[in-house]
Amino acid sequence: MGEVWASLELNGWSIAGIVATLLVTWLLASIARKGVRAALQRVPNLGVGVRRLADRIVVYGIWLLGIGISLTFLGASVQPVLAIALIVGVVLVLVLRGIADNFAASVVLQTRHPVAIGDEIESGGFVGTVTELNGRAVVILTVDGRIVHVPNTQVLGEPLVNNSAHGARRSEVEVRVEVGGATVDGADEVRALVVEAMNGAEGVHRRETVQLRPITLAADRAVYRVRFWHHPLHGIAVTDAVVDAVSSALAARGITAVVTSDLPSAPLTPSLEI
Protein backbone atom coordinates (compact mmCIF):
# COMPACT_ATOMS: atom_id res chain seq x y z
CA MET A 1 0.00 0.00 0.00
CA GLY A 2 2.82 2.43 0.82
CA GLU A 3 4.36 1.94 -2.63
CA VAL A 4 1.03 2.69 -4.27
CA TRP A 5 0.47 5.95 -2.43
CA ALA A 6 4.09 7.01 -2.96
CA SER A 7 3.77 6.60 -6.71
CA LEU A 8 0.64 8.75 -7.03
CA GLU A 9 0.96 11.97 -9.07
CA LEU A 10 -1.81 14.58 -8.73
CA ASN A 11 -2.17 17.09 -11.57
CA GLY A 12 -4.83 18.53 -13.85
CA TRP A 13 -4.68 15.74 -16.40
CA SER A 14 -4.90 13.03 -13.78
CA ILE A 15 -7.87 14.74 -12.14
CA ALA A 16 -9.58 15.09 -15.53
CA GLY A 17 -8.90 11.43 -16.29
CA ILE A 18 -10.30 10.37 -12.92
CA VAL A 19 -13.43 12.50 -13.36
CA ALA A 20 -13.97 11.15 -16.89
CA THR A 21 -13.43 7.58 -15.73
CA LEU A 22 -15.86 7.93 -12.82
CA LEU A 23 -18.48 9.50 -15.11
CA VAL A 24 -18.12 6.64 -17.59
CA THR A 25 -18.26 4.17 -14.71
CA TRP A 26 -21.45 5.79 -13.40
CA LEU A 27 -22.99 5.67 -16.88
CA LEU A 28 -22.04 2.02 -17.43
CA ALA A 29 -23.32 1.08 -13.96
CA SER A 30 -26.67 2.74 -14.68
CA ILE A 31 -26.99 1.01 -18.05
CA ALA A 32 -25.97 -2.33 -16.54
CA ARG A 33 -28.51 -1.95 -13.71
CA LYS A 34 -31.32 -1.29 -16.19
CA GLY A 35 -30.17 -4.16 -18.39
CA VAL A 36 -30.04 -6.65 -15.53
CA ARG A 37 -33.46 -5.58 -14.27
CA ALA A 38 -34.94 -5.85 -17.76
CA ALA A 39 -33.44 -9.33 -18.23
CA LEU A 40 -34.64 -10.56 -14.84
CA GLN A 41 -38.14 -9.22 -15.53
CA ARG A 42 -38.42 -11.94 -18.14
CA VAL A 43 -37.83 -14.61 -15.49
CA PRO A 44 -41.29 -15.53 -14.11
CA ASN A 45 -41.99 -15.36 -10.37
CA LEU A 46 -38.53 -14.08 -9.48
CA GLY A 47 -38.66 -12.24 -6.16
CA VAL A 48 -37.88 -8.55 -5.75
CA GLY A 49 -35.06 -9.33 -3.33
CA VAL A 50 -33.37 -11.59 -5.88
CA ARG A 51 -33.55 -8.89 -8.58
CA ARG A 52 -32.06 -6.27 -6.26
CA LEU A 53 -29.22 -8.55 -5.23
CA ALA A 54 -28.36 -9.33 -8.86
CA ASP A 55 -28.19 -5.71 -10.02
CA ARG A 56 -26.19 -4.70 -6.92
CA ILE A 57 -23.55 -7.34 -7.61
CA VAL A 58 -23.19 -6.14 -11.21
CA VAL A 59 -23.07 -2.45 -10.23
CA TYR A 60 -20.52 -3.01 -7.45
CA GLY A 61 -18.31 -4.96 -9.86
CA ILE A 62 -18.36 -2.13 -12.41
CA TRP A 63 -17.55 0.47 -9.78
CA LEU A 64 -14.67 -1.61 -8.47
CA LEU A 65 -13.25 -1.82 -11.98
CA GLY A 66 -13.73 1.92 -12.52
CA ILE A 67 -11.97 2.84 -9.29
CA GLY A 68 -9.06 0.59 -10.24
CA ILE A 69 -8.73 2.32 -13.62
CA SER A 70 -8.93 5.73 -11.94
CA LEU A 71 -5.91 4.92 -9.80
CA THR A 72 -3.79 4.45 -12.93
CA PHE A 73 -4.35 8.13 -13.87
CA LEU A 74 -2.59 9.07 -10.64
CA GLY A 75 0.52 7.27 -11.82
CA ALA A 76 0.00 4.25 -9.60
CA SER A 77 2.15 1.27 -10.46
CA VAL A 78 0.20 -1.37 -12.34
CA GLN A 79 1.49 -4.36 -10.37
CA PRO A 80 0.47 -3.09 -6.90
CA VAL A 81 -2.91 -2.06 -8.30
CA LEU A 82 -3.40 -5.53 -9.76
CA ALA A 83 -2.32 -7.07 -6.45
CA ILE A 84 -4.83 -4.94 -4.53
CA ALA A 85 -7.57 -5.78 -7.04
CA LEU A 86 -6.72 -9.47 -6.75
CA ILE A 87 -6.83 -9.35 -2.94
CA VAL A 88 -10.13 -7.48 -2.98
CA GLY A 89 -11.52 -9.94 -5.50
CA VAL A 90 -10.49 -12.94 -3.40
CA VAL A 91 -12.00 -11.37 -0.28
CA LEU A 92 -15.23 -10.63 -2.14
CA VAL A 93 -15.39 -14.19 -3.45
CA LEU A 94 -14.93 -15.61 0.05
CA VAL A 95 -17.44 -13.20 1.58
CA LEU A 96 -20.04 -13.52 -1.16
CA ARG A 97 -19.61 -17.22 -1.81
CA GLY A 98 -22.53 -18.21 0.39
CA ILE A 99 -24.61 -15.30 -0.89
CA ALA A 100 -23.88 -16.21 -4.50
CA ASP A 101 -24.70 -19.88 -3.89
CA ASN A 102 -27.99 -18.98 -2.25
CA PHE A 103 -28.76 -16.50 -5.01
CA ALA A 104 -28.17 -19.11 -7.71
CA ALA A 105 -30.30 -21.60 -5.79
CA SER A 106 -33.08 -19.02 -5.43
CA VAL A 107 -33.12 -18.50 -9.20
CA VAL A 108 -33.55 -22.26 -9.69
CA LEU A 109 -36.27 -22.47 -7.04
CA GLN A 110 -38.24 -19.54 -8.46
CA THR A 111 -37.98 -20.66 -12.08
CA ARG A 112 -38.64 -24.40 -11.66
CA HIS A 113 -41.36 -23.83 -9.01
CA PRO A 114 -40.88 -26.80 -6.65
CA VAL A 115 -42.39 -24.57 -3.94
CA ALA A 116 -44.60 -21.50 -3.91
CA ILE A 117 -45.84 -19.06 -1.31
CA GLY A 118 -48.63 -20.71 0.66
CA ASP A 119 -47.31 -24.27 0.23
CA GLU A 120 -46.66 -26.45 3.24
CA ILE A 121 -43.19 -27.99 2.95
CA GLU A 122 -40.79 -30.13 4.93
CA SER A 123 -37.14 -29.12 4.67
CA GLY A 124 -34.16 -29.06 7.00
CA GLY A 125 -36.13 -30.87 9.70
CA PHE A 126 -38.83 -28.17 9.77
CA VAL A 127 -42.45 -28.29 8.63
CA GLY A 128 -44.31 -25.10 7.84
CA THR A 129 -46.07 -22.84 5.35
CA VAL A 130 -43.94 -20.85 2.91
CA THR A 131 -44.39 -17.11 3.54
CA GLU A 132 -41.51 -15.67 1.50
CA LEU A 133 -39.02 -16.60 -1.21
CA ASN A 134 -35.98 -14.31 -1.33
CA GLY A 135 -32.41 -14.34 -2.55
CA ARG A 136 -31.06 -15.94 0.62
CA ALA A 137 -33.65 -18.28 2.06
CA VAL A 138 -37.10 -19.81 1.96
CA VAL A 139 -39.03 -18.41 4.93
CA ILE A 140 -41.58 -20.76 6.50
CA LEU A 141 -44.06 -20.40 9.36
CA THR A 142 -44.26 -23.54 11.47
CA VAL A 143 -47.45 -24.80 13.09
CA ASP A 144 -46.20 -23.64 16.50
CA GLY A 145 -45.68 -20.06 15.30
CA ARG A 146 -41.94 -20.04 14.64
CA ILE A 147 -40.40 -18.24 11.64
CA VAL A 148 -37.65 -20.35 10.06
CA HIS A 149 -35.27 -19.15 7.33
CA VAL A 150 -34.07 -22.23 5.46
CA PRO A 151 -31.12 -21.38 3.13
CA ASN A 152 -31.92 -21.81 -0.56
CA THR A 153 -28.93 -24.09 -1.07
CA GLN A 154 -30.21 -26.38 1.67
CA VAL A 155 -33.72 -26.46 0.21
CA LEU A 156 -32.31 -27.27 -3.23
CA GLY A 157 -29.61 -29.68 -2.09
CA GLU A 158 -31.55 -31.78 0.44
CA PRO A 159 -34.78 -33.79 0.13
CA LEU A 160 -37.75 -31.42 -0.15
CA VAL A 161 -41.30 -32.51 0.65
CA ASN A 162 -44.12 -30.34 -0.68
CA ASN A 163 -47.30 -31.35 1.12
CA SER A 164 -49.42 -28.97 -0.98
CA ALA A 165 -48.33 -29.89 -4.50
CA HIS A 166 -51.01 -32.57 -4.94
CA GLY A 167 -53.80 -30.32 -3.66
CA ALA A 168 -54.75 -32.83 -0.97
CA ARG A 169 -53.02 -34.73 1.80
CA ARG A 170 -53.72 -38.12 3.34
CA SER A 171 -53.97 -38.75 7.05
CA GLU A 172 -55.06 -41.77 9.04
CA VAL A 173 -56.51 -42.82 12.35
CA GLU A 174 -56.68 -46.13 14.15
CA VAL A 175 -59.98 -47.61 15.32
CA ARG A 176 -59.87 -50.33 17.99
CA VAL A 177 -63.23 -52.02 18.41
CA GLU A 178 -64.30 -54.39 21.19
CA VAL A 179 -66.15 -56.98 19.16
CA GLY A 180 -67.92 -58.55 22.12
CA GLY A 181 -69.56 -55.24 23.07
CA ALA A 182 -70.89 -54.45 19.63
CA THR A 183 -74.60 -54.40 18.92
CA VAL A 184 -74.02 -54.29 15.19
CA ASP A 185 -74.12 -57.69 13.55
CA GLY A 186 -71.02 -58.53 11.61
CA ALA A 187 -67.66 -56.91 11.01
CA ASP A 188 -68.80 -55.55 7.64
CA GLU A 189 -71.45 -53.41 9.31
CA VAL A 190 -68.89 -52.04 11.78
CA ARG A 191 -66.62 -51.09 8.90
CA ALA A 192 -69.48 -49.46 7.01
CA LEU A 193 -70.39 -47.47 10.11
CA VAL A 194 -66.82 -46.21 10.50
CA VAL A 195 -66.55 -45.20 6.82
CA GLU A 196 -69.95 -43.47 6.89
CA ALA A 197 -69.05 -41.48 10.00
CA MET A 198 -65.70 -40.50 8.51
CA ASN A 199 -67.25 -39.33 5.25
CA GLY A 200 -69.55 -37.11 7.27
CA ALA A 201 -66.72 -35.44 9.19
CA GLU A 202 -66.05 -31.83 8.26
CA GLY A 203 -63.09 -31.36 5.92
CA VAL A 204 -62.84 -34.95 4.62
CA HIS A 205 -62.62 -34.99 0.82
CA ARG A 206 -65.23 -36.92 -1.10
CA ARG A 207 -63.35 -37.15 -4.39
CA GLU A 208 -60.80 -39.51 -2.77
CA THR A 209 -62.36 -42.56 -1.15
CA VAL A 210 -61.87 -43.47 2.49
CA GLN A 211 -59.72 -46.59 2.84
CA LEU A 212 -60.26 -48.95 5.76
CA ARG A 213 -57.64 -51.63 6.31
CA PRO A 214 -57.90 -54.30 9.02
CA ILE A 215 -54.75 -54.59 11.15
CA THR A 216 -55.92 -57.10 13.78
CA LEU A 217 -58.98 -59.37 13.69
CA ALA A 218 -59.47 -61.46 16.84
CA ALA A 219 -62.36 -63.04 18.70
CA ASP A 220 -62.60 -60.18 21.19
CA ARG A 221 -61.36 -57.18 19.26
CA ALA A 222 -60.67 -55.70 15.84
CA VAL A 223 -58.18 -52.99 14.91
CA TYR A 224 -58.60 -50.96 11.73
CA ARG A 225 -56.32 -48.38 10.09
CA VAL A 226 -58.49 -45.84 8.27
CA ARG A 227 -57.05 -43.39 5.72
CA PHE A 228 -58.73 -40.24 4.45
CA TRP A 229 -57.85 -37.16 2.39
CA HIS A 230 -58.18 -33.47 3.24
CA HIS A 231 -56.86 -29.98 2.46
CA PRO A 232 -53.04 -29.94 2.79
CA LEU A 233 -53.07 -27.26 5.52
CA HIS A 234 -56.02 -28.55 7.54
CA GLY A 235 -54.63 -31.88 8.73
CA ILE A 236 -54.91 -31.34 12.49
CA ALA A 237 -58.41 -29.84 12.39
CA VAL A 238 -59.81 -32.51 10.04
CA THR A 239 -58.21 -35.34 12.01
CA ASP A 240 -59.81 -34.03 15.22
CA ALA A 241 -63.17 -33.89 13.45
CA VAL A 242 -62.73 -37.47 12.20
CA VAL A 243 -61.88 -38.78 15.68
CA ASP A 244 -64.94 -37.06 17.17
CA ALA A 245 -67.29 -38.24 14.40
CA VAL A 246 -66.21 -41.89 14.46
CA SER A 247 -66.17 -42.06 18.27
CA SER A 248 -69.67 -40.57 18.50
CA ALA A 249 -71.06 -42.88 15.81
CA LEU A 250 -69.68 -46.01 17.48
CA ALA A 251 -70.81 -44.90 20.95
CA ALA A 252 -74.32 -44.20 19.65
CA ARG A 253 -74.56 -47.82 18.49
CA GLY A 254 -73.32 -49.17 21.81
CA ILE A 255 -69.93 -50.21 20.47
CA THR A 256 -66.97 -49.95 22.82
CA ALA A 257 -64.07 -48.57 20.80
CA VAL A 258 -61.00 -46.39 20.94
CA VAL A 259 -60.35 -43.99 18.06
CA THR A 260 -56.90 -42.38 18.02
CA SER A 261 -54.70 -40.40 15.67
CA ASP A 262 -51.63 -41.29 17.75
CA LEU A 263 -50.60 -44.31 15.74
CA PRO A 264 -48.29 -46.81 17.46
CA SER A 265 -44.89 -47.49 15.97
CA ALA A 266 -44.39 -50.62 13.93
CA PRO A 267 -43.34 -53.64 16.01
CA LEU A 268 -39.80 -54.91 15.72
CA THR A 269 -39.45 -58.04 13.62
CA PRO A 270 -36.62 -60.56 13.93
CA SER A 271 -34.17 -60.73 11.06
CA LEU A 272 -34.35 -63.71 8.75
CA GLU A 273 -31.79 -66.40 9.41
CA ILE A 274 -30.11 -67.92 6.43
Rank of each mutant, 00 (worst) to 15 (best):
A6C: 01
S7E: 13
S14F: 11
T21H: 01
A29L: 09
A29H: 12
I31K: 10
I31F: 14
A32R: 07
R33E: 09
G35P: 06
A39S: 12
N45D: 12
V48A: 15
R52Q: 07
V58H: 11
G61W: 02
G61S: 08
F73R: 05
L74I: 11
G75D: 09
A76C: 11
Q79E: 15
L82G: 02
L86P: 02
G89I: 09
V95S: 03
R97M: 08
R97I: 06
G98T: 10
V107W: 06
V108M: 06
I121E: 00
S123H: 00
G128R: 01
E132H: 08
A137M: 11
L141G: 06
V143F: 03
V143W: 04
G145E: 11
V150L: 00
P151N: 08
G157C: 05
E158M: 14
P159L: 02
P159E: 03
L160R: 00
V161H: 02
N163T: 00
S164Q: 00
A165L: 02
R169I: 03
V177G: 06
G181Y: 12
A182H: 02
A182S: 15
V184M: 11
V184Q: 09
D188Y: 06
V190A: 03
V190G: 04
R191W: 02
V195M: 06
A201G: 07
V204T: 06
R207T: 11
T209E: 15
R213N: 10
I215T: 14
T216V: 15
A218F: 03
A219Y: 15
V223Y: 04
R225L: 15
P232R: 02
I236F: 10
A237N: 10
D244P: 03
V246N: 02
V246Q: 03
S248N: 08
A249C: 04
A252F: 07
R253V: 14
T260R: 01
S261F: 03
P267G: 03
T269S: 13
P270L: 12
S271W: 14
